Amino acid sequence: MNTSLSLPRLHGAVPARLLPVAGRAERCAIAAFLAKAGMIDAYSVPPDWIAGNDDEIDIALQALENWFRREAPHLGCLDPHFIVESMYEIDPEATPSNKIEAPVIGLSIKWGERNVSRWTVGAGFEALEQAVPRLGATVLDVIDKQGGLVYPLFTPAVALEQASLLFWYGEEDESLLLEDLAGQCSESEIEAMRDDIVTKEDIDAAFPAWATNLTRARLSERALSTVATRHTDRFVRTAASLALRLLRLRPVSNFMPKCEGEGVYIGFGAVLCWRDNDIAMRLSDAMARRAWEGDEETYDHIGEIELHIGDIKGMRDWMRAMRRQLRMIALLDALIEHLAAR
């Protein structure tokens, strides 16, 4: 007689993973913190989402991502994302191996670009400049200066700066570099090296002078408003209107990374090329490669904040400030998309 054997099964009510009481308490504390601050509610998450999630960081991260999608739902060129880490109560007597057992007291939140993209915008800027002198320069100036406060982009001015830092010893052109090489290399070797560096002539050939000049002449806000409302060309009106709206917004706080100035920033939201596959791509790739292969410290997050559990006001203040940031990011995104469509 054949008797089939079957393995015992657990009742469906038994959880697949058992958490210590402390772990469940931390999970609930973070969920309650986010709910009281208004980041999550019954309409934004499934009923069993928190109960079925045993990772407090995943709860916070999903809440942030869901909140972000509600606040900025239509981005097409930029792709912001969040990084969340637990903050633990530090016991000075604890060893590295048992610090993780300390209770979670807060969240460290960082944000930046998920996937750096490249957009060709030169034709759009030149069309603006041709339609209204200094309009292209004005729109680019708004992108450089307002974008630099909330979501830095790799613009022609940044390309010039990186060429100077990467190849010219921080000088205005490659003259000092060539002087150094002259004492060490033959003329044929120097000529061969020219192919491997970006020269000032390369920059000047790639971009108009006003595109790399951060002290460029620009239209007044009143003149920009006039173009936005009265110009006959829809492309011109839309670009001026987006730039004007971005210009009039001021971030409540820029939440700059703590490591700003202590390393090489490589987290630009997008590379703005003047022509397809132009020198901006080469410079952004060289910057990233040097940072990754070298001994220099790098960072790629745009902003960060630390919030203690229970600081409901702090979280609400941050969310209020970030809404302004996200409006500015959405306008940057719309400008890039508009210019690239030309």
Score class of each variant (00 low, 15 high):
residue 9 R to H: 11
residue 11 H to F: 07
residue 15 P to L: 06
residue 17 R to L: 11
residue 22 A to T: 10
residue 23 G to L: 07
residue 26 E to R: 04
residue 27 R to E: 08
residue 29 A to E: 15
residue 37 A to Y: 00
residue 38 G to Q: 01
residue 40 I to Y: 00
residue 41 D to N: 15
residue 44 S to A: 13
residue 45 V to Y: 09
residue 45 V to M: 14
residue 47 P to K: 05
residue 50 I to H: 02
residue 52 G to S: 10
residue 53 N to V: 08
residue 54 D to G: 14
residue 55 D to S: 13
residue 56 E to Y: 06
residue 59 I to T: 05
residue 59 I to K: 00
residue 59 I to L: 12
residue 60 A to Q: 02
residue 68 F to G: 07
residue 75 L to I: 05
residue 75 L to N: 03
residue 87 M to V: 15
residue 87 M to T: 09
residue 87 M to E: 15
residue 88 Y to N: 08
residue 96 P to V: 03
residue 97 S to G: 08
residue 101 E to S: 14
residue 103 P to W: 09
residue 106 G to A: 04
residue 112 G to H: 04
residue 116 V to M: 10
residue 121 V to D: 00
residue 126 E to Q: 14
residue 130 Q to K: 15
residue 139 V to K: 02
residue 140 L to F: 05
residue 140 L to R: 01
residue 142 V to R: 02
residue 151 Y to T: 01
residue 151 Y to F: 11
residue 154 F to L: 07
residue 155 T to W: 03
residue 157 A to E: 07
residue 169 Y to M: 11
residue 172 E to W: 04
residue 179 E to W: 03
residue 182 A to W: 06
residue 183 G to K: 02
residue 186 S to G: 10
residue 187 E to Q: 13
residue 187 E to D: 11
residue 188 S to G: 06
residue 193 M to Q: 15
residue 194 R to S: 11
residue 196 D to C: 10
residue 198 V to T: 13
residue 202 D to G: 05
residue 205 A to C: 10
residue 210 W to V: 06
residue 211 A to P: 03
residue 214 L to I: 15
residue 219 L to W: 02
residue 220 S to N: 09
residue 220 S to G: 15
residue 222 R to H: 12
residue 222 R to F: 09
residue 223 A to W: 00
residue 224 L to I: 03
residue 230 R to D: 13
residue 231 H to R: 08
residue 231 H to N: 12
residue 234 R to K: 10
residue 236 V to F: 03
residue 238 T to K: 15
residue 240 A to T: 02
residue 246 L to Q: 02
residue 251 P to F: 05
residue 259 C to Y: 06
residue 266 I to S: 04
residue 268 F to C: 05
residue 270 A to F: 02
residue 272 L to F: 04
residue 281 M to E: 15
residue 286 A to G: 01
residue 287 M to H: 09
residue 288 A to E: 07
residue 288 A to L: 14
residue 290 R to S: 12
residue 297 E to H: 14
residue 302 I to R: 12
residue 304 E to R: 05
residue 310 G to N: 09
residue 313 K to R: 12
residue 320 R to L: 12
residue 324 R to L: 12
residue 328 M to I: 04
residue 329 I to F: 05
residue 333 D to W: 04
residue 334 A to H: 04
residue 341 A to D: 06
